[in-house]
């Protein structure tokens, strides 16, 4: 055993009717990010740097719901959150309510390394960002036209929507608006076609067996301002220790309740399960009625992805040559 491994995700819960073009773009982005991570791992870059690097790339691309492309709050603004954790010493950092920081995951890393705290939020996090001199942009930078349209629809439907990946135009052509939301496939109580994958994440183990995890998100479409989900919560959306690294996505509230990321590590640590067994157990037994997915790597260089949603944008690779990018159940 041994060797590096990496997995990335762009959210769990995908509309089965997602246009082919959109699927293709998502796979291309996942492949690009995976390759970025692979080349970093091959150059012996530590896992903690690799997960940050890959998540920055996902944040910078507007396709998924994090950084640029983040879902909008009920006020039409962006409030992003992220966390990162380094397995060997279980050091961690998290941010919430970030509105001008181009790469929230890097701010989370700075909280971990440059502050005595683990978690800083809202105006305090913005102030910390300025002190640290990270790249700042106007809130508008994060707001895409597509998301503005989706917020409008969400408000019309008077519901809180997870992010989605259906172009507004596409939706209109296939009977738009609230009427279109009558669909049997649901996620978080919402029709899947307007739900959508939220969150991006990356987990990696380097060739020295160090695990790390990072997760970043814009949260829910039409969310109340101030809402915090699972992504910044250590043990819920993100966890890493000397055994494994995990990043979760899906219904935030179910993930928080299930302390899902820590759970994978806990059953490995306390029940002696292997990575795949642990991941299967957690997805099958620990989600109650909730819908979610996760990616995980072990210190031994194994990788696992599981979800009980309709699809998850994901990709994984290991040193011994496995490489896979997928959306649907295989």
């Amino acid at each position: 055993m041994g060797g590096w491994a990496i997995a990335v995700h762009g959210g769990a819960g995908v509309d089965p009717n997602l246009p082919q073009q959109r699927q293709k773009e998502a796979k291309q982005l996942l492949t690009r990010c995976l390759n970025l991570g692979i080349s970093a791992l091959s150059s012996n870059i530590p896992a903690i740097d690799v997960v940050e690097l890959v998540v920055r790339e996902l944040e910078t691309d507007p396709l998924f719901n994090s950084g640029r492309g983040s879902a909008l709050t009920e006020k039409g603004t962006v409030e992003m959150e992220a966390s990162i954790m380094d397995g060997p010493k279980r050091r961690c950092g998290a941010v919430s309510g970030v509105t001008t920081v181009k790469n929230p995951v890097s701010l989370a890393r700075l909280v971990m390394e440059k502050s005595p705290h683990s978690y800083i939020a809202f105006s305090g996090a913005e102030e910390f960002a300025r002190q640290q001199g990270v790249e700042l942009v106007a809130n508008d930078y994060f707001i895409t036209e597509e998301n503005v349209g989706m917020l409008k629809m969400a408000k019309e439907a008077n519901s809180i929507l997870f992010d989605y990946r259906i172009p507004v135009i596409g939706l209109e052509t296939c009977s738009a608006g609230a009427a279109a939301m009558d669909n049997s496939l649901q996620m978080n109580g919402l029709p899947i076609r307007v739900y959508a994958p939220e969150t991006v994440g990356c987990v990696a183990v380097d060739s020295q067996g160090r695990c790390a995890a990072a997760t970043s998100t814009g949260g829910l479409m039409n969310k109340m301002t101030g809402r915090i989900g699972d992504s910044p919560l250590i043990g819920a959306g993100t966890y890493a220790c000397n055994l494994c690294g995990i990043s979760c996505t899906g219904e935030g509230e179910a993930i928080i309740r299930g302390t899902l990321a820590r759970e994978v590590a806990a059953v490995m640590e306390y029940k002696g399960l292997g990575l795949q067994e642990a991941v299967d157990y957690v997805i099958n037994e620990r989600l109650d009625e909730g819908k979610a997915g996760l990616i995980a790597v072990s210190a031994k260089g194994e990788v696992a992805c599981r979800f009980n949603t309709n699809g998850m944008f994901r990709g994984c690779a290991t040193e011994d040559g496995l490489m896979e990018v997928a959306i649907w159940e295989q």
């Binding site: 919430s96 309510g97 939020a121 809202f122 105006s123 809180i160 978080n188 109580g189 969310k223 109340m224 301002t225 101030g226 809402r227 915090i228 989900g229 919560l233 935030g252 509230e253 928080i256 309740r257």
Partner: peptide, 15 residues
């Protein structure tokens, strides 16, 4: 009373 678990800062005060 909310579909969420965790509210913070101004949003929590507004709630």
């Amino acid at each position: 009373k909310t579909p969420h678990i965790y509210l913070a800062f101004d949003g929590a005060e507004a709630f």
